[in-house]
Write a protein that binds this DNA or RNA. Structure first.
Lengths: 245, 245
DNA sequence: AAAATAGTGTCTTTGAGACAATATCAG
DNA sequence: CTGATATTGTCTCAAAGACACTATTTT
């Protein structure tokens, strides 16, 4: 993490400043499972905390490069996955004296949804230290650097919560996609079955899909393909999926 | 903003750090209107940006005093209002090169809901520079310091959004309160009328209110008083108030 | 024709919206 | 009793849940 161009800090203050970082929780669905992208922290350098541990991709804000927090998050995402314009939403921020052994730090966390086919994991020297993990496995054995386990936990809760009443899962699929494919994504993220008929009615009534011709499935009856009318913002449904107790 | 106790910064880095601040959007309802607490920035000191402008209460994180971001937000809130344990939720963070003339800065924003009777505005020397403003007025003429107008806008949208399907407005009332009083708060925040019958059914079905004996109103029929079963977390309703187009 | 998946129809239930009706207090 | 406010009841409607049924493809 080096600064290419240094800029003089405006007035100097007589009190210590916390570190400012940005982390990105990058989700995708592959192999019928919700996955999250993790990077392995350097093993060798002893100055770096949590050597060899897995962590969310992220790092220090570079005030000479990043115009704002969102731009910084987009940069981190691009550097690790090559993806340019995914669904990206701010999750929140975590900051305190104890989360980083180097001192008081605060991280601004974003979460991203990307179709698994769009991904081209960071190549070159550091290719080996980036990998997808099944969210279920990571949460069951949450040994992540810093407070990243808690952050991931919050991100998954936020994702599951949103999926109950928005079209978010559509951002996890490459276009065009079929309604059965989309339903499958909902079921994977929510970890429960969803009724076919009600699902179709809800999706089509929400008016966010545009037909894109039939897609030839591997076999059997072909299904209608759809694209998103708006690739930036999810649609909000009038009710959640299950008001059941 | 001075640090009482300085702590040596762990390792020194060769790149400039952004400033880290915390701001709090403090809402209450008084005089039949949604209000927000603002503080006036110092007029005299020329080193301070936006002299004389109104701003959200907040300021630099004090790494010697604040254990974490939430504790910092609670401190700011306590210093301005004397309130100890209100409803407090993280709103998000704003950071970039342009928002503060002194340099790259990032602020972590919380929003608080407090009953207007609990408030004791900051006394002493700086009593005059803290005041309640009608949210409607501020949004109509949004001349606030930094990017605080945008932050307030987001906070109001978040509040209005949550109020559609949660019991949040209950945190704006002192206990015990009556259902008609609570309904009035909903109407003020949402800025529209709410049906009485449906409102009562919804509130009572959600099981978050406990009866607290009759409250003698100014006249007419007395209403049942209620307290919150859980003073920390709001209840989520199965649907929003108006799915109408 | 059989298997498999895509897509539709029907009935029930939940909870909101509209609005009328009744209850209980002060004066 | 009257006025005002609190509280309840009735009818309708939108959308979800359950589940059976039909449609279209491949083999």
């Amino acid at each position: 993490m080096t600064t290419k161009k240094t800029r003089p800090q405006a007035p100097s203050f007589d009190f210590p400043l916390p570190f400012t970082t940005v982390d990105v929780v990058i989700f995708t669905v592959a192999d019928d499972a919700l996955k999250v992208l993790l990077v392995q922290r350097p093993q060798d350098k002893k100055s770096e905390p949590f050597p060899g541990w897995w962590a969310l991709p992220g790092g220090f804000v570079d005030v000479a490069v990043d115009q704002d927090l969102l731009a910084c998050a987009e940069r981190k995402l691009r550097e690790k996955t090559g993806v340019l314009t995914p669904y990206l939403e701010q999750l929140g921020s975590w900051g305190g004296a104890a989360r980083d052994p180097r001192g008081w730090s605060a991280t601004h966390v974003y979460f991203a949804l990307i179709p698994s086919r769009d991904i081209e994991l960071a190549k070159g020297a550091n290719a080996a230290d980036v990998a997808w993990f099944a969210v279920e496995d990571v949460l069951a054995d949450p040994r992540l650097a810093f407070d990243h386990a808690a952050i991931l936990q919050t991100a998954v809760e936020r994702l599951r919560g949103r999926v109950e009443y928005t079209s978010l899962p559509a951002f996890l699929l490459p276009e065009p996609f079929t309604l059965p494919q989309l339903q499958r994504i909902y079921e994977i993220v929510l970890n429960r079955a969803v009724d076919k008929s009600g699902f179709r009615t809800r999706m089509l009534a929400a008016q966010f899909l545009v037909e894109a011709g039939h897609v030839e499935g591997s076999s059997n009856r072909p299904a209608m393909g759809y694209r998103l009318a708006d690739r930036r913002t999810p649609v909000v449904f009038p009710r959640t999926f299950s008001p059941r107790d």
